[in-house]
């Protein structure tokens, strides 16, 4: 019963045909500095591996680059942080529900972690409360995590991503890898101080899911039977499209969005947090790849 995980993995597999299969693995492996000096074995170099890990002598003997592997001192714990409030049931920029993108992202990173033997946990919640799933290894645990994130609908309580970050800050003392998946509004609900404190304690990868463009022309009637009217998941207020599409409103909205993006990026950057973007589930794997890449470079 690992339906969601299976779906995530098959999407990853499709992606892996386009880029090198091990690329993601390599990127993930080099994010963490928790390496011991106890040599374990050698394996073939995969693009994305740290160049300094190449065993040049062994490579010279072997004829192709080899990577030194060490026995990990300790397992890196990966804590997925997700918003499971009603906001995530809303549309993303690409048109699918944001929670689908969240499931994909958490699944990709979770399975990468499991591949590396790192246990994975989840902190999720909404305005009514924050829950945690224990940090454990195994596909069944990851599937459970993904199901929790997938179980979001219009019935869910409103979102409060700041609460979840506060919960993490208060609860987890040990250094972990935080993988935060949130929509564009999440950063605005936290303070820079909170982010700094979190960053001081943990490694943080932040994936922002793009919100739907409210001024975009309505798509043609689609067979899934969705209407074309936009309605807020929280306030139930409708967006009047002809009004939203008028040039003045459009310009003001674009300007506001640009400013919002800039201030969010700046805040995360000042806090030392690496941010990636995904507007649809197809963009998740490249987004995580570049997120890992820039995190390795930056941090």
């Amino acid at each position: 019963m690992t339906a969601l995980l299976h779906r995530v993995k098959s999407k990853m597999f499709i992606f892996a045909h386009r880029k090198a299969r091990g690329l993601l693995d390599g990127e993930y492996g080099s994010v963490f500095k928790g390496r011991s000096l106890d040599f374990d074995d050698l394996r073939a170099y995969v693009p994305g591996d740290e160049v300094r890990d190449i065993d040049w002598k062994a490579s010279a003997r072997h004829g192709s680059p080899l990577i030194r592997r060490y026995v990990a001192v300790r397992q890196q714990q990966v804590l997925l942080v997700a918003d499971t409030g009603r906001n995530m049931a809303a549309e993303s920029l690409g048109g699918e529900p944001k929670k689908d993108i969240a499931v994909m992202a958490l699944g990709v990173l979770g399975s990468l972690a499991l591949n590396h033997g790192d246990p994975v946990g989840l902190v999720h919640g909404d305005a009514t409360g924050t829950q945690a799933l224990p940090v454990k290894a195994g596909d069944a645990n990851l599937e459970r995590i993904l199901r929790k994130v997938d179980d979001v609908g219009r019935h869910s309580a409103p979102s409060a991503p700041g609460e979840q970050l506060g919960f993490v800050e208060r609860t987890f003392r040990r250094r972990m890898l935080l993988f935060v998946v949130a929509d564009e509004g999440a950063v605005a609900e936290t303070t820079e101080r909170q982010l700094r404190r979190l960053r001081a304690q943990h490694e943080i990868l932040w994936l922002t899911i793009r919100d739907a463009d409210l001024t975009a022309p309505a798509p043609a009637a689609d067979p899934a039977g969705r209407g074309t009217a936009l309605r807020d998941v929280v306030g139930r207020a409708a967006v009047v499209h002809p009004v939203a599409a008028s040039p003045k409103v459009l310009a003001a909205y674009q300007l506001a969005r640009t400013e919002r993006d800039a201030s969010r990026s700046a805040m995360l950057r000042r806090a030392g947090i690496t941010e990636g973007y995904a507007g649809s589930s197809h963009e998740v794997v490249p987004a995580i790849f570049s997120l890992l890449e820039s995190h390795r470079r930056g941090g």
Partner: peptide, 26 residues
């Protein structure tokens, strides 16, 4: 109760004074 697209953070659009003016005219 027609089917509609659920979106979040509509206040980013609806709170804009330009939108309010246009909405009033509309």
């Amino acid at each position: 109760d027609c089917r509609h697209r659920a979106v979040a953070h509509t206040d980013r659009l609806t709170a804009l004074p330009e939108y309010r003016d246009a909405l009033r005219r509309h």
